Simulated assay, not measured.
Amino acid sequence: MRVLVVEDELPLAKLIRQGLIADGLLCDVAIKGEDALWMADATPYDVVCLDVNLPGIDGFETCRRLRASGVATPILMLTARDAVEDRISGLDTGADDYLVKPFDFGELLARLRALTRRPAAAGGTEIVVGDLVLDPVTHRVTRGGTAIELSVKEVQILEVFMRRRGEVLSRLQILEGAWDNGYENRSNVVDVYIRLLREKIDRPFGVTTLKTVRGAGYRLDEA
């Protein structure tokens, strides 16, 4: 799950980001509504966590503009305002849920998970490529019914490949898909993780599905 946190209180934004990353999520931070507009348009976030009281355009206007520009990403509004009128305003501008500060971080995580489940509720959350199955919510990975233990980062990278099965992905595309904007672009980090993934999802099963496309990148095929 990739989350955009829009919060101008930097200590709070930092705490939220650290908590989300510790829970295995990717997180980018914007401190102004104007920044949130172009970031949400440029990156396919799974959910936006949007504070109401922002410098420049406030959260209500940011939400309205996001919806007007065609961004359908679920939006959770955060605010210290607990008046019913404010909650109605937030929902009417296009927000999907509302959480009043101060909040319990566990509740924040639960609400984010609930929002990202809604679009997939009819078809389930699992991603399937051949006999390889990944549940992004539980991080459970199996091949042919056999469980595979992966680290959080390995799951994130595998999800990028499985969502774009059969496509050749460059190292930059993999970095952009599995790391947030704070990643360090080290030349060999992708190659290291690809080797680790192959040792876990391919070699024990006698298959080669995560393939190198020389001069272009990597591709995940069905077994």
Rank of each mutant, 00 (worst) to 15 (best):
M1T: 13
E7H: 04
A13M: 04
K14V: 00
L15S: 07
I16C: 01
D23W: 04
D23Y: 04
L25I: 07
A30N: 07
G33V: 01
D35A: 15
A36P: 09
L37S: 12
M39E: 08
D41S: 15
D41C: 11
Y45L: 03
Y45H: 02
D46I: 12
L50W: 06
N53P: 01
N53A: 05
I57S: 09
T62E: 04
R64C: 01
R65I: 03
L66M: 08
R67A: 02
V71K: 09
V71D: 08
P74D: 02
I75M: 08
A80W: 05
A80C: 09
R81S: 08
D82M: 09
V84A: 14
D86I: 06
R87N: 06
A95H: 02
D96F: 12
L112E: 08
A114D: 13
T116K: 13
P119C: 00
G124V: 04
G124C: 08
T125D: 14
V128I: 15
V128D: 08
V129Y: 10
G130D: 14
P136D: 11
R143I: 05
K153V: 14
M162R: 12
G166T: 05
V168T: 15
V168C: 12
L172Q: 09
G177Q: 02
W179H: 03
D180N: 13
D180C: 05
N181E: 10
N185Y: 06
R186W: 04
V192Y: 15
Y193M: 02
I194C: 00
R195F: 11
I201D: 04
P204G: 00
K211S: 08
Y218C: 07
R219S: 11
R219Q: 15
L220T: 10
L220Y: 10
D221L: 10
E222C: 10
